[in-house]
């Protein structure tokens, strides 16, 4: 049983489920760290999509895989910035609960 015996749609469905979980986490969880983790899940769902498409549709060119590597690098940077922000906010508000970060409110 090789990897090719699994149809492309399976990968896509898995990716969609992961993306949905991540999105739900971003929209529904109150903890800022959890939200950052959820964003990571979404990014990895997208990565899975890219790799699967690359493998199945244009196997000769590895462009999808390379794209995924870029996304990981950027995700790492983004997490670094995101966590720094969360830390700074925590120092000011003594909380990582997003409901308490409402300075933008009218």
């Amino acid at each position: 049983m090789s990897l090719e015996s699994i149809p492309l749609s399976y990968y896509l469905i898995l990716s969609a489920i992961l993306f949905g979980i991540g999105l739900a986490g971003v929209l529904l969880r109150k903890n800022a760290v959890t939200i950052l983790l959820s964003v990571e899940i979404m990014l990895n769902a997208a990565n899975l999509n890219l790799v699967a498409f690359s493998r199945y549709i244009t196997p000769a060119a590895a462009s999808g895989q390379i794209f995924a590597l870029f996304v990981m690098a950027i995700a790492a940077a983004e997490v670094a910035v995101g966590l720094a922000l969360v830390l700074t906010i925590y120092r000011n508000v003594k909380s990582v609960n997003l409901d308490e970060f409402n300075l933008f409110k009218w």
């Binding site: 971003v26 929209l27 529904l28 997003l98 970060f101 409402n102 300075l103 933008f104 409110k105 009218w106």
Partner: peptide, 17 residues
Amino acid sequence: LRQIQTGYVQNYALYML
């Protein structure tokens, strides 16, 4: 219109979605 501006980041994310 300003009622839309709740100040909750997640609301804005929802609007984006």
